[in-house]
């Protein structure tokens, strides 16, 4: 296998917050620490090949958006590194995160919040290339028009403002803005989640076309399993800051192995299969402030044994094209322990 384009290597991200005065006092009395730590990501290893679309799936609070932001250099990792073609994408300097590349571009969930309402669409799309001196002004204008057509809008829209567009059209503008930087990797964070089904299909088709024409590499972050199946080659399932299963999309959707993945798939209502017998996961996602010991999923897992409570399962290969972090799937020892 060739060297991956984007490499996320042993990345952990913790956010800390100072406690309030009273809590700090309590912490001192009980011998605790004066800060609160959220373990957003713990030891995440992922690599994306050129031309590949990797799906990141998980529920709220699993760290998928944090991962997207670290991959695009908006946050720096607390531990580990993210490299694009061997070069780091961000560094921490003087307490601030410095983005080192423009080759990873992000597309956000809400196109109503991500476009500046006071800037014309043409200015928004051209701003990146202009500020980074990627091209001269006349070239930028020409490129802007070309990009608008590429995402299925009209070139004459450059002089309009965002409020003149619908949600689906705005999301296309956001895609055009990202493409203006000639990125090597796109990070799409719930990019179609806020759109209606019929509009979502239009935007997904734009993405499919762009992928075919430009050979895009992308991280596709979503909670929607059917959308992920449609656009992704490989899929990583996340739970409470860790990747619990990583496999080719076809392999994963054929038969999920991790109990969480299995339960997640079982919870999703599907179209056209008639009245469902719901068999939901019990309980709720634990707080990343205070994650459970051992396997983070063990309090909700119907198959958990003593080993699951004590030891954190490592993500390891089982069959070709699939990694699972579960004691049940590392040679059967977990089953005996249960």
């Amino acid at each position: 296998m060739s060297e991956p384009l984007l490499k996320i290597d042993h990345v952990s991200k913790r956010f800390t917050r100072d406690l309030g005065l009273i809590q700090r006092g309590l912490a001192r009395l009980t011998g605790g620490r004066g800060v609160e730590t959220v373990h957003a990501l713990t030891d995440v290893n992922l690599s994306v090949q050129r031309g590949e679309v990797l799906g990141i799936v998980g529920e709220s609070g699993c760290g998928k958006s944090t991962l997207g932001r670290i991959a695009s250099g908006i946050y720096a990792a607390t531990e580990g590194s993210v490299t694009l073609d061997g070069q780091p994408v961000a560094q921490e300097r003087g307490g601030r995160t410095q983005k080192l590349t423009t080759k990873v571009q992000m597309i956000h969930q809400d196109p109503f919040a991500s476009l500046n309402p006071r800037m014309k669409v043409g200015e928004t799309i051209g701003e990146g290339p202009r500020l980074n001196h990627l091209a001269k002004a006349p070239e930028v204008r020409a490129r802007t028009r070309e990009l608008l057509e590429q995402v299925g809008l009209e070139a004459t829209y450059v002089d309009r403002y965002p409020h003149q567009f619908s949600g689906g059209q705005r999301q296309r503008i956001a895609i055009a803005r990202a493409l203006a930087m000639n990125p090597e990797v796109l990070v799409l964070d719930e990019a179609v989640a806020s759109l209606d089904v019929s509009i979502q299909a239009q935007v997904l088709n734009v993405f499919t076309d762009l992928r075919r024409d430009l050979g895009l590499t992308a991280l596709f972050i979503s909670h929607d399993l059917s959308v992920v199946r449609h656009v992704c080659d490989r899929v990583a399932i996340m739970y409470l800051g860790r990747v619990v299963e990583l496999a080719d999309a076809s392999v994963l959707y054929d038969k999920p192995l991790h109990p969480y993945t299995e339960a997640l798939f079982a919870s999703v209502p599907t179209l056209g299969t008639g009245r469902a017998r719901f068999n939901p996961i019990k309980g709720e996602i634990p707080s990343p402030l205070n994650p459970p010991s051992g396997c983070a999923f063990h309090p909700r897992c119907p198959l958990a044994g003593p080993r699951c409570r004590a030891e954190v399962p490592r993500l390891r290969g089982t069959t070709v094209g699939r990694d699972v972090a579960c004691h049940l799937h590392d040679g059967g020892t977990g089953v005996e322990a249960a």
């Binding site: 019929s198 499919t208 059917s226």
Partner: peptide
Amino acid sequence: LIQSVPSLHEPGRKLPQIPGS
């Protein structure tokens, strides 16, 4: 509307879409 739902189609193919908004 039903045809725009991705799970009913082969992955990676273009989805049938309702034109306009």
